[in-house]
Design a protein around this nucleic acid. Structure first.
Length: 425
RNA sequence: GGAGAGAUGGCAGAGUGGUCGAAUGCGGUGGUCUUGAAAACCAUUGUACCGCAAGGUACCGGGGGUUCGAAUCCCUCUCUCUCCGCCA
């Protein structure tokens, strides 16, 4: 949620930057500002009346202690009753207008960073760098769904039987490889200073709201109606919400967390080729990194996160590229996002495996996540997060990239986790 | 799931209708003293909104109500604790 103060003091700048997303929000913002103006004047009126009635109540108390029968009391009571009627009306008005302001603010996406490239579609994203490993294998390359069947790594059919499409069952060495990747990612992240967490996989409404899944992505989450809880679409939600409603000391920062969790996404509207195999699932596993930072340091923090995730991709030996998202492709709550994509030789295309974002104050404003800076001033924190990494597409790319005629090689760094160096028949 | 008790500032803990944003202790910060430190003493120490400021308003788990006046009374929700039941 954008801060209304920012909106009123930098109106034209905010409007300009929001245009990168491909829409003009100037009239929405004007409406919000005039609502806020109105809100202030109502509140002023309200406060004055409250003050008066408070004074009267005090006066009654004083008279009461000396002369219970004083005729003044009745008169004052009446006066206060009248005031109360006015206050009631003003407060109803105030509540209404505050709700309108909040609703309006929630509809505004985050302000894109000035460096965000112009553009409306995926092809407008800016490729920062590409690192492609040369092929050493010249036989026919199979896509991962064929390999999963051949080596019995994943049972898609029975996943569909047991739950539905998009719920694969890993088995045998497939399951072991999956588990090894989780451990490997967590170890790499903790070695880089992130503290490991294992959060709840269900969250309440406040948490879903805090990180911006509600109300924007309501239909994309699984909801448990009995208890009004949501299955998490990413562990960013429970982890970031740990710090909701907090004023941290500047020397508590940065807070760096990493966590594994399954992620549940309804993915309503997806179909066809894009969802084949492991490409798009309703339940998938992910290791996430979250960082809470001082405002001045978040830019550097984002760069560090990128370097860290990149070092993992290099270690795994995958071909990858780093992409800076254009305004049109930028997520609703993000100000600046970089994606890592790995090259899938079996499908001959790039697949997103990590999305690293700086949300600046957009999440923290909702979360009321603040810190006291060195001068004692209270400010909103900056929040950042990224996948480090998302499992299924790494899994599929590994088996596609390192397939040989009758076996699959396991990358060196993973072997101490898997306990085997290849998958064969 | 059943029965009971409770939720107050960073923490502990008073306060059961009037001048309470809230005693007291601990902790934090600043100072005095000291070569330095400790101790002692003094001062200070919540958040949000409005206002140039002075100042005003709201907040004692959340929401609603009674009253001229609510931390205090009533309703409701959530959470915590104790006992019983069930259970990996």
């Amino acid at each position: 949620m954008i801060e209304i103060k920012n909106l009123s003091s930098n109106t034209s700048r905010v409007v300009e930057l929001l245009k990168k997303r491909g829409s003009d929000f100037s009239s929405d913002i004007d409406t919000l500002l005039s609502l806020d103006h109105k809100r202030k004047s109502i509140q002023k009126n309200n406060d004055e009346r409250l003050n008066k009635s408070k004074q009267i109540a005090k006066q009654i108390g004083e008279i009461f202690s000396s002369d219970i029968k004083s005729p003044l009391i009745q008169k004052l009571k009446q006066e206060s009753s009248n005031l109360k009627e006015e206050i009631k009306l003003l407060q109803a008005e105030l509540k209404e207008i505050e709700a309108q302001i909040k609703e309006g603010l929630l509809k505004l996406p985050n302000i894109p960073d000035p460096s965000v490239p112009e553009g409306s579609k995926e092809s407008d994203n800016q490729i920062i760098r590409s690192v492609v490993n040369e092929k050493t294998y010249s036989e026919k390359i199979y896509p991962h769904w064929d390999l999963c069947e051949k080596y019995k790594l994943i049972d898609f059919k029975n996943g569909t039987k047991v739950t539905g499409s998009g719920f694969p069952i890993y088995k045998g060495k497939g399951s072991k490889l999956q588990r090894s990747l989780i451990s490997y990612f967590l170890d790499r992240n903790t070695k880089h200073g992130y503290e490991e967490y294992l959060p709840p996989f269900l969250v309440n409404v406040e948490s879903a709201f805090g990180t911006g899944q509600l109300p924007d992505k309501d239909s994309q989450m699984y909801h448990i109606s009995n208890d009004n809880l949501y299955l998490i679409p990413t562990s960013e939600v429970p982890i970031t919400n740990i710090y909701r409603d907090n004023v941290l000391a500047y020397n508590d920062l940065p807070i760096k967390c990493t966590s594994y969790s399954p992620c549940f996404r309804r993915e309503a509207g997806s179909y066809g080729k894009n969802v084949r195999g492991l490409n798009r699932l309703h339940q998938f596993e992910k290791v996430e990194i979250v960082e809470i930072q001082e405002q001045e340091k978040s830019e550097q923090a984002l760069n560090n996160m990128i370097k860290h995730v990149e070092s993992i991709l290099i270690e795994l030996g995958l071909s990858y590229r780093l992409v800076k998202l254009c305004g049109g492709d930028l997520g609703f709550t993000s100000s600046l996002t970089y994606d890592f994509e790995v090259f899938s030789p079996g499908q001959n295309k790039w697949l997103e495996v990590s999305s690293i974002s700086n949300f600046k104050t957009y999440q923290s404003n909702r979360l009321k996540l603040r810190y006291k800076d060195i001068s004692g001033k209270i400010k909103l924190c900056h929040t950042l997060n990224g996948s480090s990494l998302a499992l299924p597409r790494i899994f599929s790319t590994i088996i596609e990239t390192f397939q040989k005629k009758n076996f699959i090689e396991i990358p060196k760094v993973l072997q101490k986790y898997t306990g085997f160096s290849k998958i064969d028949l």
